[in-house]
Simulated assay, not measured.
Amino acid sequence: MSETLIEKRVTHTHKSPEGVIVVVSGIPAQCAQNSDGEPYFYDFDVALRLEELINAALARKPSPGAVVHVAWDEKVEAIKPPADVEIRVRGEGIIFGSTSISVWRKILDRAHGAYQAVARVLAEKEGRPVPPPPVLAFTLPGSLVIGLRSQETPLFAEHDLSSEALRLIVEGVRWAEDGVPKNDPVLEETVLRAVEELSPSGREEIREIEITYQAPHRLRTQAVLTPETHKKAVERRVELARQEEQAKPVVLAGLLDEIKLDDVFHLAQLEEFPDHHRTTTARVFYPRILLPILLQLFGQRVRVVAEGVKNSTGKFEYRALSIEPLEPLEK
């Protein structure tokens, strides 16, 4: 004859390898009706939330030996250090403490590249300097969890370009799924590129990336990036380019005299350029895949096939499609 189970509120104590003690009180547990409360067990969902509460408390990096008290009904977001975006990485063998540093670097590099591209476009639209990259707010045990926080501290939240860039990357996942709003082709194309860069390719150990925008005083949004997201972002971007009549291939030829790591290179002494171009220099955006050949050709005369697109201010921007060396000038 099976015993009737009842719910009992219990306290759980966890000691981290660093000696931090996390005490979680008020946890709903199940135990036999006629027992004195021992033994008891947790439902699966309760166990998951308990792990989240403990990890959130440890994310604040309390000093060794500290005792941290957490109530069961506290919000996980309120316990963790403040962050604008939380990135959770899942995949085969991706576990905190046993995942190679190359996976960590891959995620942080992708997040940085996606952020830089979107932040730069936003800054140009506002006529402001490009904001600094976000800082690492926290990491959590379990699957890889990374919190990113804007370094900007404007008086009004809507003036935080760094946080807005992070929000747009999350919003871009919806654009990849449902279509872009088609209000600003340059920004929309950049956001889709950012989503494409951050999404798993399907040819790596990363299976999916869950990204949550949770900046203070902003609407909380969440998205999951998968290899299918990567595919859809590419399709939407190609579709956007086809529909945008102003996007036309152009040729630029000159001296490659500057390469910046924020995806821009500079041409001087132009000898070939489109009719609408009025100077002998050009600033060109490049996809990261072209960086190795750019570094190889630095200081040489090159021929660039690029997409010429008018930005929101009416000026033409160039986005490199290919690059090749030219013969050196005859002396």
Score class of each variant (00 low, 15 high):
residue 183 N to W: 10
residue 136 L to N: 09
residue 174 R to K: 15
residue 271 E to Q: 12
residue 297 L to T: 06
residue 9 R to M: 05
residue 122 L to R: 04
residue 149 R to L: 07
residue 252 L to E: 10
residue 85 V to I: 14
residue 15 K to G: 01
residue 45 D to M: 03
residue 233 A to M: 12
residue 317 E to V: 10
residue 309 V to T: 09
residue 31 C to F: 06
residue 235 E to T: 00
residue 319 R to H: 15
residue 324 E to S: 15
residue 304 V to F: 04
residue 331 K to V: 04
residue 226 T to V: 11
residue 321 L to N: 09
residue 199 S to A: 14
residue 48 L to Q: 11
residue 247 A to Q: 08
residue 145 V to I: 14
residue 59 A to E: 15
residue 10 V to W: 08
residue 270 L to D: 09
residue 88 R to V: 15
residue 326 L to I: 10
residue 281 T to H: 15
residue 311 N to R: 03
residue 231 K to S: 06
residue 242 R to Y: 11
residue 83 A to N: 01
residue 73 D to C: 00
residue 93 G to W: 07
residue 293 I to T: 07
residue 13 T to R: 03
residue 91 G to P: 11
residue 113 G to T: 03
residue 185 P to K: 14
residue 330 E to L: 08
residue 19 G to A: 06
residue 311 N to E: 08
residue 67 V to F: 05
residue 41 F to K: 03
residue 92 E to D: 09
residue 191 V to F: 09
residue 317 E to L: 15
residue 277 H to P: 02
residue 146 I to G: 02
residue 247 A to N: 06
residue 190 T to R: 03
residue 36 D to F: 13
residue 268 A to E: 04
residue 207 R to P: 06
residue 46 V to G: 02
residue 250 V to L: 05
residue 224 V to K: 13
residue 278 R to N: 02
residue 74 E to T: 05
residue 13 T to D: 03
residue 88 R to C: 13
residue 25 S to D: 05
residue 184 D to F: 11
residue 86 E to F: 07
residue 81 P to A: 13
residue 100 S to N: 15
residue 315 K to N: 14
residue 40 Y to E: 01
residue 223 A to P: 07
residue 102 S to M: 05
residue 230 H to Q: 02
residue 269 Q to H: 15
residue 45 D to G: 02
residue 232 K to E: 03
residue 110 R to Y: 09
residue 249 P to H: 14
residue 285 F to H: 08
residue 22 V to G: 00
residue 139 T to A: 10
residue 173 V to A: 12
residue 181 P to W: 01
residue 309 V to D: 04
residue 17 P to Y: 11
residue 222 Q to G: 02
residue 285 F to W: 07
residue 186 V to H: 10
residue 41 F to T: 05
residue 313 T to N: 06
residue 102 S to D: 11
residue 120 R to A: 12
residue 303 R to D: 11
residue 63 S to M: 06
residue 161 L to T: 05
residue 57 A to I: 01
residue 196 E to Y: 15
residue 3 E to Y: 09
residue 302 V to C: 07
residue 13 T to I: 06
residue 152 E to R: 14
residue 142 G to A: 00
residue 117 A to L: 08
residue 329 L to Y: 07
residue 57 A to W: 00
residue 123 A to D: 06
residue 12 H to D: 06
residue 115 Y to D: 07
residue 242 R to L: 12
residue 301 R to I: 08
residue 321 L to D: 08
residue 101 I to Y: 12
residue 208 E to L: 09
residue 150 S to F: 09
residue 71 A to K: 13
residue 236 R to M: 13
residue 325 P to Y: 14
residue 290 L to C: 06
residue 319 R to F: 15
residue 265 F to N: 03
residue 171 E to G: 00
residue 31 C to Y: 07
residue 20 V to C: 11
residue 328 P to K: 14
residue 148 L to K: 02
residue 294 L to F: 02
residue 138 F to I: 02
residue 52 E to Q: 13
residue 294 L to I: 00
residue 234 V to E: 12
residue 295 L to G: 05
residue 314 G to W: 03
residue 174 R to Y: 14
residue 59 A to I: 01
residue 36 D to S: 14
residue 158 E to F: 09
residue 241 A to V: 03
residue 45 D to R: 09
residue 308 G to S: 12
residue 230 H to A: 00
residue 138 F to C: 04
residue 176 A to P: 01
residue 167 R to K: 10
residue 246 Q to V: 02
residue 86 E to Q: 14
residue 154 P to Q: 11
residue 147 G to Y: 01
